[in-house]
Amino acid sequence: MNNSSKLKRVLEGGGFAVTAECGPPRGANSDVVLKKAEMLRNNVDAVNVTDNQTAIVRMSSIAACSLLKTAGLDPVLQMVVRDRNRIALQSDILGASALGIRNVLCLSGDHHIFGNQPQAMGVFDLDSIQFVQVVRTMRDEGKILGGDDLSQPPDLFIGAAANPFADPFDFRVIRLAKKIRAGADFIQTQCIYNLDRFERWMGMAGDRGLTDKAYILGGVTPLKSPGMAKYMKNKVSGMDIPDEIIKRMEGVPKYKQREEGINICVETIRRLREVPGIKGVHIMAIEWEEVVGEIVERAGLLPRPVFD
């Protein structure tokens, strides 16, 4: 088995990449992870494993990534700076690489006040951009912060997130540029429902030459119900869901709402494929991994490339 990042090979080969998301369980059961792996196998190129998302304690992202890796998938290790200082972050980067994990997504993390440990001390020793830079320096220069040499640098394809929908809008592209300059090889975006705004943002990114400097994957999340759409619009910060989407979800009978959510998702992916500079799609089917295969197939993205 080739031990390099499949995601990187797809993107560098000029392919349109497909990634999905796997949330680790709120327990020590590896079978949950392996079951999700089977749902995603052959449907996607790589699988992001979230890091205590929404600040809820779950199985560690590194452990779940390792399980996926052993099962033959290409995991993307999500790492947030909320819970670890620079010592722990750098140490985990080395450990992840040693376990054969080949992709990392460097994030700030949802604030712990939202989760089930609101009394926790938030760390935030590094921010996500500094973290990207640290990982890049470890990989490319073999040095940790402060300049000490590594006996062997980590082998990682480095990613960062971007939210084209948060405020202030004009600054979003500046921040994207900073992440790419810090060393992000690929970018996965917040869920896209407002395609007009997304296209404007991509236009601005293209004008700055950013779409040539990093691989940008558009994020999508299939909606299960109009309630979910409204919840995301009103309660999830940095989320932009146009009223037409909510109306469309409300316009179908209840038993057809999930199907409609999938329809919207497939249409979004089809339109994203036409957006200049987009190199792939990141499907975040939240606790609904079984639907990813259908979405990928209907979006015309099967079969996925195979490497030996």
Binding site: G109, A166, P168, R175, Q190, G238
Partner: peptide, 14 residues
């Protein structure tokens, strides 16, 4: 809230 030196994060609205 996240002590970012390279902010803003993706969570601010209005």
């Amino acid at each position: 809230s996240k002590q970012l030196l390279n902010g803003p994060c993706g969570g601010s609205m209005d």
